[in-house]
């Protein structure tokens, strides 16, 4: 085989995947970007829609409902991710030890993550049910009043936050646990000899050393939290009012209920831009830390 043909081989192997990528990802995105410049009703063919330039993008900012939905999304994402980080890392610290039954315990802890989101939504909807749900029944039997879990705007947001925390804390837990277990054991022993208490070991040694993993975990989780749909759709469908109408739900409703495909596309693009920024931050971060590690290695070799 000639050198030229050989250098072509890798591309040949990648061609099927590339073709799928173009058809299933790039084409829809291009289509969506194009659509976002149109005033397009689903009953029209795309060719019949009128071109409106950036109007969909600009008008969104004067749309109070979009702004509220955006705000809800930000609030939801930042709250769930911060609480999940604290709980996940905390649990990992607690369960990073070898006692009997720990493997079983760890497996149980990561179960929620493995359940399909729709099912998670259904489970929680039944548990939050005003009369037959376990929460209110328990509260009532203890003599407390029922809580309007899904029918009050404060409680419904709280409820979906609780459900999301239940489902996704395990993700942070397993990644933190893996990070913890790969920490240099002897550095922790050195810290014990140096007189660090358990808490001081966490603050001065464990957390700083886990930081690279934690930052990537945080960004991954944040990206995911911005895209959440199914659980909220099943539990509250955005209500009451707009109190839980996160962005992806708003996009779906704009397309199907309000029949404004162009506006929905523009909204999707905003979300896409936001996620791309987060992804870029993540990649930049890993790139920077890799470069730093390489520089350190080089310096140590030069002595």
């Amino acid at each position: 085989m000639s050198t030229q043909a050989r250098s072509f081989t890798p591309y040949l192997f990648m061609a099927p995947a590339a073709a799928v990528l173009v058809v299933a990802l790039l084409y829809p995105i291009a289509y969506m970007i194009y659509a976002s410049f149109l005033d397009w009703n689903p009953s029209q063919r795309i060719g019949q829609a009128t071109f409106v330039g950036l109007r969909n993008y600009t008008s969104l900012w004067s749309d109070a409902n979009f702004r509220e939905s955006f705000g809800v999304t930000l609030k939801f994402a930042s709250l769930v991710v911060s609480i999940e980080m604290i709980l996940g890392v905390g649990l990992a610290m607690l369960l990073d030890r070898s006692i009997r039954g720990m493997t079983v315990l760890r497996t149980i802890f990561i179960l929620p993550m493995m359940i399909a989101p729709i099912v998670v939504g259904l489970i929680w909807r039944y548990m939050y049910h005003p009369t037959v749900g376990i929460f209110n029944r328990t509260l009532n039997s203890l003599g407390f009043e029922s809580v309007p879990w899904l029918s009050d705007s404060f409680w419904s947001l709280t409820s979906i936050i609780i459900a999301d925390i239940w489902q996704w804390t395990p993700f942070i837990f397993i990644l933190s646990l893996a990070a913890l277990q790969s920490l240099p054991r002897s550095a922790l022993e050195a810290a014990r000899i140096d007189g660090a208490s358990g808490w001081q070991q966490i603050v001065y040694i464990k957390l700083p050393l886990m930081m690279p993993v934690l930052i990537v975990t945080l960004l991954l989780r944040l990206i995911d939290a911005f895209k959440v749909l199914e659980v909220v759709l099943v539990m509250t469908n955005g209500g009451p009012g707009l109190s839980t109408e996160i962005l992806s739900l708003r996009i779906a409703r704009t397309a199907s209920e309000f029949r404004e495909l162009g506006v929905a596309a523009a909204m999707s693009n905003y979300l896409l831009i936001l996620l791309m920024i987060l992804t870029a931050i993540m990649f930049t971060y890993t790139r920077l830390s890799e470069a730093r590690a390489a520089r350190l290695r080089q310096m140590s070799e030069e002595g």
Partner: peptide, 20 residues
């Protein structure tokens, strides 16, 4: 007693320095 209460210092095989 805990290590810190024994008044010892230790040097490890892999140095065990705090990397950060």
């Amino acid at each position: 007693l805990e290590p810190k209460e024994r008044g010892l210092a230790m040097v490890f095989q892999d140095y065990a320095l705090y990397p950060h």
